[in-house]
């Protein structure tokens, strides 16, 4: 647990390092798979960059929209700076929605490639990359768990973003572990030539995230509605939307795949 890694006189944020590792794993895997599946590497890079841009904008936009009053107060009280706000504060679901939206719109307007093929080659690796980034959360102390002094509890140091000196539940590590398991499941689905990779990913991650939110202690970062956090509400929508779509598609006899 160390928010910064010191290399000579450079302070590298642990989260940034792990985020970079996950990005490199995603890119390397995607390039190899694109080559194996006779897809254009340049098109893959374009789509990956568009998704990254959409993820950056979406995650920041959702964070600022949901926490507008808190951010205003923190800025006016000099608790955070504009630079803090630019380099930190990303909501995963905002990123996911932004990435999918940007991919769909950019591809429809400019690139016009078979987006489903490109998405399907990288979906199994996405939870793995997300899990690596979650380890970065653990190192920097953000997205921390509830107070808990049982087996496996962790105490964060003084310079961490999590409250120091208190035994906390290691929710970041649990989420990382579950994401690795989800990644293995998606690789198995891919081997079995499943047509519902994106649906499976969204539904399983949604269920996982819904329950993990109960173990999150960073209540200040969240907005609550009917005792549910914004991530739990989005999780419910993400679980219900593909399920309803599949059920309605089956009822209408279309047999269409959401993925």
């Amino acid at each position: 647990m160390n928010p910064y890694i010191h290399l000579f006189s450079i302070h590298i944020p642990s989260y940034g390092l792990l985020a970079l590792v996950s990005l490199m794993v995603l890119s390397a895997y995607g390039i190899i798979k694109a080559k194996q599946n006779d897809l254009s590497i340049d098109d893959f890079l374009i789509l990956e960059s568009i998704a990254l841009l959409g993820a950056l904008i979406g995650s920041k936009l959702l964070f600022v929209t949901l926490n507008f009053n808190k951010i205003q107060l923190a800025l006016s009280s000099n608790l955070i700076t504009v630079n803090d706000l630019l380099t930190s504060g990303f909501i995963f679901y905002g990123g996911l929605i932004g990435a999918l939206l940007f991919l769909y719109l950019f591809n429809k307007k400019f690139l016009k490639v078979d987006l489903k093929r490109y998405l399907n080659i990288v979906i199994p690796i996405i939870p793995l990359c997300h899990g690596i980034a979650r380890i970065g959360c653990y190192l920097s102390g953000c997205c921390y768990g509830i107070a808990y002094d049982g087996i496996g509890s962790v105490v964060f140091p003084e310079n961490s973003l999590a409250p120091s000196g208190i035994h906390l539940f290691p929710v970041q590590l649990l989420e990382a572990f579950l994401l690795f398991v989800l990644s293995i499941c998606l690789f198995i689905f891919e081997k079995r030539k499943s047509n519902h990779l994106l649906t499976s990913y969204l539904v399983f991650y949604g269920i996982m995230r819904f329950f993990l939110e109960f173990l999150r202690g960073d209540k200040l970062e969240k907005v609550y509605l009917f005792s549910l956090s914004e991530s739990q509400i989005i999780s419910l929508m993400i679980i219900l939307f593909p399920v309803l779509y599949l059920l309605l598609g089956r009822k209408n006899g279309k047999g269409k795949s959401y993925s």
Binding site: G16, L73, T87, E221
Partner: peptide, 26 residues
Amino acid sequence: VVLGVLLFVACAGVLGAAGVLASSGY
């Protein structure tokens, strides 16, 4: 992009850094 992500993406949460807000009863 490599340099930017490596050196400047600090964490997923920002308001946690301003934990004083919590104690101020916001």
